[in-house]
């Protein structure tokens, strides 16, 4: 072969460039510790997603001191949950799977990005140092309304973060003189027990308090018995407060004679 010296030099320089590129990527893996999406998440039958322990109630779960897991189900054209909130200074492992076609789970303006292929679970671990708000979008065509598929990721300061949720079961109406109850179920998705106080305030008149301990990854129902005699007839706004979370509604107390058969 009759190769010009300049071209031999260029060949050598090109090899240096190629090796340099591979070296940079290798540095990225061992230095900053960047890991690629791989087969760690395993596979799943999309028809069994609702029965899957991780995906039957997708969302954020506390698994270690500063460690969280976020399970997300993608489907045309939405993410469940559509809004994810995690604390700053935490390590979050995302598990994302698809119910139908191929999607992506992409946190816009960051390097958090994975394909979501039906039958597969994408697993990725991300450290969130600073609070911030990010958009989540699908960057793989997934049908006619692909462009409407989006979500939200909120990284909040640690002291503003918890995994407490309230749901309240109460009657809207009660007869004067009868007792009614306001039941609040407090769920706790942290991996330690939540010891707190539940407060019920009705208008300016009544304030009830109960201590409650919600077990880790469990829930506890607080029952407030309300005596309608003290309230009198009329509309009464009430608020249940637990661990900074509030649930409110209105209780209408009616007169026995006006209220019909009175089994409210």
């Amino acid at each position: 072969m009759n190769i010009h010296t300049y071209e031999k030099t260029w060949l050598a320089v090109s090899m240096v460039l190629i090796v340099g590129f591979i070296a940079t990527v290798t540095y990225g893996a061992v230095g900053p510790g960047i890991a690629m999406i791989d087969d760690d998440g395993g596979s799943i039958d999309p028809d069994t997603i609702n029965d899957d322990e991780r995906f039957n109630d997708p969302g954020v779960t506390h698994v270690g001191e500063n460690e969280y897991e976020a399970a997300v189900v993608a489907q045309a054209w939405t993410y469940t949950p559509s809004e994810i909130t995690v604390p700053a200074n935490s390590t979050v492992t995302f598990y994302v799977t698809s119910r139908d076609v191929t999607h992506s789970f992409t946190v816009a303006g960051t390097n958090v990005n994975t394909m979501v292929v039906p039958g597969q679970i994408s697993e990725m671990t991300v450290e969130f140092d600073e609070p911030g708000e990010y958009g989540i979008l699908c960057n793989e065509y997934c049908g006619a309304y692909h462009h409407t598929m989006e979500g939200k990721l909120n990284v909040v300061p640690q002291d503003e973060f918890d995994l407490t949720e309230l749901s309240t079961d109460a009657s809207d109406e009660a007869q004067l003189g009868n007792q009614t109850t306001i039941n609040t179920t407090v769920s706790n998705d942290m991996n330690y027990d939540l010891e707190t106080t539940a407060t019920l305030e009705i208008g300016d008149q009544q304030s009830l308090e109960q201590d409650v301990t919600v077990p880790a990854h469990g829930s506890e129902t607080v029952e407030f018995a309300v005596d309608t005699t003290d309230l009198g007839t009329g509309d009464h706004d009430w608020t249940v407060t637990v661990d900074g979370h509030e649930e409110s509604d209105t209780l209408t107390v009616t007169n026995a004679t006006e209220g019909g058969d009175g089994d409210a």
């Binding site: 303006g109 960051t110 671990t125």
Partner: peptide, 19 residues
């Protein structure tokens, strides 16, 4: 390449890392 990898990429906020 240096600009893209070390400024645009590594400077682009949260990144997927391994354990």
């Amino acid at each position: 390449w240096i600009f893209m990898y070390f400024v645009e990429f590594l400077g682009n906020g949260p990144t997927v890392t391994g354990v």
